[in-house]
């Protein structure tokens, strides 16, 4: 916590190419300010984001993951984001149950024309991540109290 001022969270964004990715572009071209903490990956649709990608990002040390797609009803492929919604919803709930801070997985609907909303979402998500601190979910040193089962 002492390092909070220096530490910057790393956020991985899976952005739908038809909307949120363009929204991010728009935020840039219209000079909206948002934190530089996000690394964006362009995906064909928010439904492409298997939960595996989300967990893998956390495993690799990202502090949080943002999945962003088209508003319900606006999917380029008609129903992709509805399916994404189901999958992300259960993933989010399930991770929360396991003990993952809810801030670490966020999802949003951002259209190509919502540069402002994109900036807001990233700002908000980054702020949340700063509050929960660095992701140490998979770090080795947390494991203690267990007995050695085999040769140490």
């Amino acid at each position: 916590m002492a390092q909070q001022s220096e530490w910057e969270p790393k956020l991985l964004g899976f952005l739908c190419r038809w909307c949120s990715y363009a929204g991010a572009d728009l935020a840039g071209t219209s000079r909206k300010k948002y934190p530089a903490n996000i690394r964006a990956i362009k995906v064909p649709c928010s439904s492409r984001v298997d939960s595996l990608l989300i967990i893998k990002a956390l495993r690799l040390g990202f502090d949080g993951v943002l999945v962003s797609g088209c508003h319900p009803g606006d999917c380029h492929y008609l129903t992709g984001n509805y399916r994404a919604r189901r999958r992300i919803a259960i993933t989010k709930k399930f991770l929360e149950y396991l003990g993952v801070e809810p801030e670490r997985l966020q999802a949003s609907w951002v259209s190509a024309s919502e540069g402002g909303k994109f900036a807001e979402v990233v700002t908000e998500v980054t702020k949340g991540l700063k509050e929960v601190g660095p992701n140490q979910l998979f770090s080795e040193r947390k494991l203690d109290g267990t007995k050695t089962k085999a040769g140490s």
Partner: peptide, 19 residues
């Protein structure tokens, strides 16, 4: 020696370093 003896963790018996 590092002594190993039967031990139970969550009901599972294994040889573990003796406490």
């Amino acid at each position: 020696f590092a002594v190993f003896a039967p031990s139970k963790e969550s009901g599972v018996a294994a040889m573990a370093e003796w406490d």
